[in-house]
């Protein structure tokens, strides 16, 4: 192609802004500055909201536990366990998600794609590994509560309650995994396929 220089000129004649279109295109420095400030504020608000939400939940829970003196040790342990496992699961999930958002975007494309693919696949692996443990931890906590609540009932009634709540929660494992897997596939599979195809082209070298 001898006319590469010509093509360069044609290509470079296209500009980001053009006269009155400036504002409409949203690429003026003032508009960008506004957007960036809004973006930073939004990020700070989201983090603040998460910290406040967890703090409120923990405060209310602690207050209730220590205020209601008629709660037995088993109930306190059961509730504490459920809340602890839930918060731990949520924090680990956030951490997992933030790893994808905080990738080194200034890396070379091949490195970037490899990392992105790895992190995206880790997201679904994380759920597959931790979600069953989380549900089983809930089963243990709820059974502790039931043990205390059903104190005085006959063995048959107690067994029925314990089994029904345990089975219901355990059934949630495959259902939860299926829903999460479907959502992951819907949201991420097109991008994973695309990145894998681009990576395949890169690897031809």
């Amino acid at each position: 192609m001898n006319n590469l220089k010509q093509l360069e000129e044609i290509w470079q004649s296209q500009k980001a802004v053009s006269g009155n279109d400036e504002q409409r295109l949203g690429v003026t420095i003032e508009l960008m500055a506004d957007k960036l400030l809004a973006f930073e504020k939004k990020q700070k608000r989201i983090t603040l909201f998460k910290v406040i939400a967890i703090s409120i939940i923990l405060s209310i829970f602690s207050w209730q536990l220590f205020t209601f003196s008629d709660l037995s040790l088993i109930v306190v342990v059961g509730l504490g366990w459920i809340v602890f496992c839930t918060i731990l699961f949520i924090v680990l999930y956030w951490k997992q998600r933030s790893q994808l958002e905080n990738m080194n975007i200034a890396a070379s494309s091949t490195d970037f794609i490899e990392t992105a693919l790895c992190k995206m696949k880790q997201q679904i692996h994380f759920f597959r590994i931790y979600f069953p443990f989380f549900v089983l931890a809930l089963v243990a906590g709820v059974n502790l509560l039931y043990y205390e609540m059903l104190n005085g009932q006959d063995l048959k009634t107690r067994l029925i309650f314990h089994l029904s709540v345990s089975i219901t929660l355990i059934i949630m494992i495959p259902i939860g995994l299926k829903i999460r897997g479907y959502k992951f596939k819907k949201d991420n599979q097109p991008l994973i396929d695309e990145l894998e195809s681009i990576m395949h082209e890169f690897r031809e070298s």
Binding site: I105, N188, L191
Partner: peptide, 21 residues
């Protein structure tokens, strides 16, 4: 180079947000 790397990588991941072709 730094700017282009960011631009190229952002473009590669752009489909994640739009999720449409």
């Amino acid at each position: 180079t730094w700017v282009y790397r960011i631009a190229v990588n952002t473009s590669l991941l752009y489909l994640k947000k739009t999720n449409r072709r």
